[in-house]
Design a binder for these strands. Structure first.
Length: 579
DNA sequence: ATAGGGTTAG
């Protein structure tokens, strides 16, 4: 039988039985022990990869070879790199090196893919040096793999370096770095690279490019740029790709415009994509529109799309943000009944939901009933519910768990201290504060930013580094004066949350979100919608103040905080003061 | 003659 025929046959083999016949033929025709026998390697690969995934049989064949070639080693490696335990691929790669088998670019490529899956930083660098030693660096595909792995393990510096040093860059190289920067929280750099790609590379961005660029816009809340990209998508006809549409839906939602998300959602041609539904449900959830999220959840069932664990996370999140406690509990139970396993995020959502509704004991029981060990965030969730209801006993349980887990988060101490303060237990308050000082407590600085004319303006609390800081502070004085007419009193209780002593009063007046909103008011024409982004949760006093600003300045203000959106209009907020 | 880039998530 001719080789070409064998190859096509191999591709058509549907059952292991068919392949065994081929294997037998290889052996009887004596090709099997040839030093170079591509078909033999193919055969190993065939067993090692899906749909068969029979690595042990691939190994069995491999062991029958007297002198395996690089291709044979690669075939096993490729299978190991995508199996359930990718570390086995790294071990295999090591053994290849030890046995001084000649490696090639493919060997490195498969080993690198395994590194990406297990986030093996040291091994990535070791393989990188093998790439250089072997002289494979000029290989464009391998270069892209390498930069992609660096990006995935979070070493964006090295990813950029590889990209810069690559001799040949094709569209995949650009795409890998754009997506990597977006995922690595470097949205601005991702967009900058996207701009560079269009200007200097002569490459036409494809659906994968725009997915990365849109992710960057979502992360930054860069609406204008997101809309520009959407325009490009339509011009190029890329909107026939479902993933691209999903990313557009997500972009609009994360930029504060859930209505625009829904317009795109309604125009998506096929309605059988699970991620499309999940994205839209999560969009409504993050905007506090629990009813619409639940409506969609019902609808997707009627068109035959089966909810998965992400869908349930979306609806639980929606119930949480809208205060729909009973619905949330009901959905959580129906999730369990449908055989889906809740993960930490599902528990987090339900514990938050119960906790904030004052059902602390149920929340605690749920934490105890879990089959997995509660993580830091879950105990923090419970602790913050304890603060709302002043539950000292449970706050102490949660705090000691957090201490046990080695958390040295500033907020945890503040929460516990506030619980004691609400019961006027000042000795305990002092004790917590002292503990804060002795431990190396980290405080994440709060900042907000606003995009005006395509420029991102970033503010910290009490920030005076902005070019227009004098005008901003003047505006804040004006605001304070104006909103007093509506009966505003500074929310002194919020000062309690801040242990920063002296500048308590000022800290409150000049919180970063207030600075950003004030800058928005002075730099846009009246009646323009203002969007502000904050890295932490919005503070209660700022929430009050911005509500009143929306009324007295007659404008719409959208604030995206770490967890959700607040849309302020005519003196009230879309979160209905529940967040 | 074999490999690289991709949407939803407390």
């Amino acid at each position: 039988m001719a080789k070409a025929n064998l190859n096509t046959l191999l591709q058509k083999c549907a059952t292991p039985h068919h392949i065994k016949q081929l294997q037998a033929h290889l052996i009887t025709a004596a090709h099997f022990q040839f030093q170079f026998c591509p078909l033999r390697s193919k055969l190993i690969e065939f067993y090692a990869l899906p749909p068969l995934n029979d690595l042990s049989h691939a190994h069995t064949i491999f062991r029958q070879i007297n002198t395996p070639s690089t291709n044979d080693f690669n075939a096993i490696l490729r299978g190991l790199a995508r199996c359930a335990e990718p570390t086995r691929a790294i071990s295999w790669f090591r053994s290849v090196l030890i046995n001084s088998v000649r490696i090639d670019a493919l060997t490195c490529s498969f080993a690198l893919q395994a590194c990406a899956r297990v986030l093996a930083c040291v091994e990535t660098m070791q393989i990188h040096s093998q790439v250089l030693r072997g002289g494979f660096f000029a290989d464009a595909l391998l270069g892209t793999t390498l930069l992609d792995v660096y990006a995935k393990i979070g070493d964006l510096f090295s990813a950029k370096k590889v990209f810069d040093e690559m001799l040949v860059r094709d569209i995949a190289s650009w795409n890998a770095l754009i997506a990597g920067l977006a995922q690595g929280n470097l949205g601005s750099e991702a967009l900058e690279l996207f701009r560079r790609m269009r200007e200097e590379s002569l490459l036409r961005p494809n659906e994968i490019t725009v997915l990365g660029a849109l992710a960057a816009c979502s992360q930054l809340g860069a609406l204008r740029k997101g809309e520009k990209i959407y325009e490009y998508i339509r011009d190029e006809g890329l909107d026939t790709n479902v993933q691209v549409c999903n990313a557009v839906i997500d972009m609009y939602a994360k930029c504060g415009f859930v209505d625009k998300s829904f317009l795109v959602f309604e125009n998506v041609k096929c309605r059988n994509n699970l991620v499309t539904w999940n994205t839209m449900i999560m969009a409504f959830a993050n905007h506090g529109d629990g009813v619409k999220a639940l409506e969609l959840f019902e609808q997707m069932g009627s068109v035959g799309v089966k909810p998965d664990d992400v869908t349930y996370l979306g609806v639980l999140c929606a119930c949480n943000h809208a205060g729909l406690v009973d619905d949330g509990v009901r959905l959580f139970n129906s999730m369990m009944e449908s055989g889906l396993n809740p993960n930490m995020k599902h528990y987090g959502s339900v514990v938050d939901l119960l906790g904030r509704a004052g059902r602390l004991q149920e929340a605690y029981d749920m934490v105890k009933s879990m089959s997995m060990v509660a993580d830091v965030v879950l105990w923090q969730t419970l602790l913050s519910a304890c603060q709302i209801y002043g539950d000292v006993k449970m706050a102490e349980i949660a705090s000691s768990k957090l201490a046990e887990m080695g958390s040295s988060n500033c907020g945890d101490f503040v929460l516990l201290s506030n619980v004691y303060a609400s019961h006027e237990r000042w000795d305990d308050v002092g004790r917590v504060r002292r503990a804060m000082r002795t431990r190396d407590v980290q405080k994440v600085p709060g900042f907000s930013y606003i995009e005006v004319n395509g420029v991102i303006n970033k503010f910290f609390t009490g920030d005076k580094t902005h070019g227009s800081w004098r005008e901003i502070y003047k505006k804040l004085d004006e605001i304070r004066f104006k909103i007093k007419e509506y009966g505003y009193v500074a929310g002194t209780s919020y000062v309690l949350h801040d242990l920063g002593e002296e500048e308590k009063e000022n800290a409150l007046c000049y919180h970063s979100e207030k600075l950003a909103v004030a800058f928005g008011l002075i730099s846009t024409s009246e009646g323009t919608s203002i969007q502000v982004f904050k890295n932490l949760r919005i503070c209660g006093d700022c929430h009050e103040v911005i509500k009143l600003i929306s009324k007295s300045y007659n404008c719409e203000i959208i604030v995206r905080d770490r967890v959700r959106f607040h849309k302020f209009k005519e003196g009230s907020c879309s979160c209905k003061d529940y967040w």
